[in-house]
């Protein structure tokens, strides 16, 4: 399983212009916020377990809160991961091909990432609206499920933008790559 490695010396440091830096900042902010939401879920779970053990009084609806928050938090992780070249991919077959070809293929890959993000953002939003329309709620607390679904959209939308940006970025590297340096998009 691939994972970002703290302090990995060989990790490439992509160079970005103002737009890229803005997208990176947005993605990073969403990621950290989502990660902190998980820290919050840990704290809630501990309170609930202790309450259940000691007083037969868990946090009411702890399971459904965890599910709703986790969905929104997880969706916010994707954009930064893609801009950071964090995708899991097979690079075996293209290891000996020129960097220009690889950048070309990665541009296509990023474009597909953009389609994926846009598609899911749109459909998750449509799903959220119909859930809201029919007033579906969580079982115990009665929270509208649609809001949790809608909260996935910003992360997925940012993934679409990041994919689009990275597609252009890779295309520009095709030219820059031949001169041996990264081009600022």
């Amino acid at each position: 399983m691939k994972e970002p490695i703290a302090g990995d010396p060989a990790a490439p440091l992509p160079v970005h212009g103002p737009l890229g830096r803005l997208l990176l900042t947005c993605g990073k902010t969403l990621s950290v916020l989502g990660g902190l939401l998980f820290v919050g879920l840990v704290i809630m779970s501990i309170i609930s377990i202790v309450g259940r053990k000691l007083a037969s009084a868990p946090v009411p609806g702890d399971m459904e809160v965890l599910q709703m928050v986790a969905a929104a938090a997880s969706a916010s992780f994707f954009a930064y991961c893609h801009m950071n070249h964090g995708d899991v991919k097979v690079d075996f077959f293209t290891a000996n091909v020129s960097p220009r070809v690889n950048h070309g293929l990665d541009a296509v890959g990023s474009l597909l990432v953009a389609c994926f993000g846009a598609l899911l953002c749109w459909r998750a939003g449509a799903g959220a609206l119909s859930t809201l329309e029919f007033g579906e709620t969580s079982a115990i607390l009665g929270w509208p499920v649609g809001w949790a679904q809608l909260a996935m959209c910003p992360g997925l939308g940012l993934l679409a933008l990041s994919g689009l940006y990275m597609a252009v970025w890779h295309l520009r590297q095709i030219h820059g790559g031949s001169r041996g340096k990264e081009v600022i998009a």
């Binding site: 029919f134 007033g135 579906e136 709620t137 969580s138 079982a139 009665g142």
Partner: peptide, 11 residues
Amino acid sequence: VWTVPTYAAGR
């Protein structure tokens, strides 16, 4: 589908 409709609470 065969389902328990009330799994979608409130609907």
